[in-house]
Amino acid sequence: MDLTAPAIAIRDLNKFYGTFHALCGLSLTVRKGERVVVCGPSGSGKSTMIRCINQLEEHDSGEIRVFGTLLDDNLASIDAVRREVGMVFQHFNLFPHMTVLENCTLAPILVRKTPRAVAEALALKFLEKVRILDQASKFPGQLSGGQQQRVAIARALCMQPEILLFDEPTSALDPEMIAEVLDVMVTLANEGMTMICVTHEMGFARKVADRVIFMDKGEIVEEAAPAAFFEAPRNERTRLFLSEVLAH
């Protein structure tokens, strides 16, 4: 891990599902501390792209470097990258058989070999940060969707990652719960966390993003600072997409 290198450097990334070309020669560089929002219609490859970054999907060709570490056939580098890259999922994916606290301490204890007491103190700190400290001894099934997603964020933070990936974190939530999750994400963004966030929450993008990326059919169609992206989209497809998303 070389923390002076770009946080993420993707070059000419290709990914196929059978004959379906999910990612077509995609390239993207994210600096440390940068906040990138990725949007696009469903099936455009945005989730696939961020899932390649921590190798939940294996890419077929091209190059992905995370802080200089090349993701290739070497299992050690995959392990190293996953330690530094946290991920928050659309469906939370909390472990239902563990309490909130156990969810948060599992990986630090097992992977980082943090002593249990230290890991628990850390977990409580992050649970407080996502404003859910009072639920620490409950099981995920006893929490609302918004609470679960905030726990999921805390769980990712407990590994103290350099980068956080968000895969449509609010898509599975009831409307009244979206705000509480977005609030936490805004706080994180303001603290300088490197974030790549796949989302359709354009308000969030406008507020915190350094850069907004629009993907369609496995390619990056447009990338720009939020002001330029929303006020003056250059590409026809982007304009169409924005008109559909913002119409509601």
């Binding site: 070389d2 200089g68 570490t69 290739d72 056939d73 070497n74 299992l75 050690a76 995959i78 190293a80």
Partner: peptide
Amino acid sequence: MPMPAAPLWRSRTTRS
């Protein structure tokens, strides 16, 4: 600092 070259048993293909 790049990772050292992968030892044989840590390579996904060889290990499989």
